[in-house]
């Protein structure tokens, strides 16, 4: 699971750039041209791309934590292998994305340190709890399903190293998603208590899944730098609608009910009622749905979600516990250019 869709874009100022170079750059990108690290690019493009890759990388390695907890509890040999491989892939995605970001001018160490001291953010959906095995199943199906949709469009972006990484990531996410489907279908074809467990987890994850694509589009969405420079190639609301169109009927076919839920501060569902807007518009082909609770979404982004503290504490603890190892293997390299 991963994402970078909800990076807030505040930069984009190019007033200091050479107007001719800038015009040529924008024309190149607008015509579908791609940018490699050694090409000329406006500073604003570089810093925005760096932030996007860094946020994405942060999301991957924080996303590895909630699922990582369940590796030791996976209920069969196949599930244990697959979940370990999935979490491993996420660490691998993080590693590759940190390399992309690093080439844009910030060291991996600086990025890891900014993450664990709260200077930079990661994707919001990892601030929610995973109390049961069924949560792991829902994350793999819904969140990875959402990530594939999002990253599929990011793979058509303008920055070469990032889109190459997206293609590779999507190949691995395809496994996560298929395995997620298999797990959800297994529960929904299982015993009554398995079905109940699945429904309860679905109630916890449906809202974070549709909020996954980030806040509603602004009126000037297409003019904003991330879209103008083709870092993003689809808007949040378009992706969200596409997601609902695909997953709402599929979820219902398995017997899951799409509810609108209220939750307490710990992320526990306190009430669930069927979504009154859930209906297929025959004309547009779009499914109606109730928007996520955006007020709560922004509250969690600001650090007040059920698991923000735990996630950062574990990342930080891991970083500190590993410090001596990184130091040791560097000290052991007697000649820096040893090959």
């Amino acid at each position: 699971m991963s994402a970078s869709a909800n990076v807030e874009v505040k930069v984009g100022d190019c007033s200091n750039e050479d107007p001719q170079k800038l015009a040529a750059f924008e024309e190149h990108v607008a015509n579908g041209g791609l940018i490699e690290p050694n090409d000329w690019m406006p500073e604003a493009y570089r810093s925005l791309m760096l932030r996007m890759a860094e946020h994405h990388a942060n999301s991957e390695i924080v996303g590895a934590l909630p699922e990582g907890e369940w590796i030791v509890k996976a209920p069969s040999l196949l599930r244990k292998l697959a979940l370990t491989a999935k979490v491993q892939d996420e660490v691998g995605h993080g590693q590759m994305l940190y390399e992309v970001a690093q080439d844009l001018g910030k060291s991996r160490n600086a990025m890891l340190r900014d993450l664990i001291t709260g200077v930079t953010k990661y994707h919001n959906c990892f601030n929610y709890p995973c109390p049961t095995w069924a949560d792991i199943c829902m994350i793999a199906w819904l969140i990875d399903g959402a990530a594939i949709l999002n990253q599929g469009t990011l793979a058509h972006g303008s920055f070469g190293p990032y889109i190459r990484t997206m293609r590779r990531i999507n190949m691995e996410e395809a496994f996560h998603f298929k395995h997620g489907e298999d797990m959800v279908l297994t529960l929904m074809s299982g015993t009554d208590s398995q079905k109940q467990m699945a429904q309860e987890a679905f109630d916890r994850w449906w809202e974070p899944s549709i909020a996954f694509f980030g806040p509603n589009d602004r009126p000037d969405e297409l003019e904003r730098p991330a879209m103008r420079w083709r870092m993003k190639t689809a808007t949040n609301d378009d992706l969200r609608q596409k997601f609902v169109n695909r997953f709402a009927p599929a979820a219902m076919a398995t017997g899951l009910v799409i509810n609108v839920c209220t939750k307490d501060d710990q992320g526990n569902v306190t009430s669930a009622t069927p979504d009154p807007l859930l209906k297929l518009d025959e004309e547009t082909g779009h499914w109606g749905f109730t928007q996520p609770n955006w007020e709560e979404f922004f509250r969690v982004i600001r650090g007040n979600g059920p698991c923000n503290k735990d996630r950062l504490a574990l990342r930080r603890f891991s970083y500190e516990q590993g410090e001596w190892v990184r130091k040791a293997i560097l000290d052991g390299t007697t000649t820096p250019c040893k090959n």
């Binding site: 390695i61 590895a64 934590l65 699922e67 990582g68 590796i71 030791v72 370990t84 491989a85 979490v87 491993q88 996420e90 660490v91 691998g92 993080g94 590693q95 940190y98 574990l314 891991s318 516990q321 590993g322 410090e323 190892v325 990184r326 293997i329």
Partner: peptide, 16 residues
Amino acid sequence: DWTGIAPILEADIAFS
């Protein structure tokens, strides 16, 4: 169980 929390990302992947 080390997956995701080993000292270096590359080592994490390998150990897993």
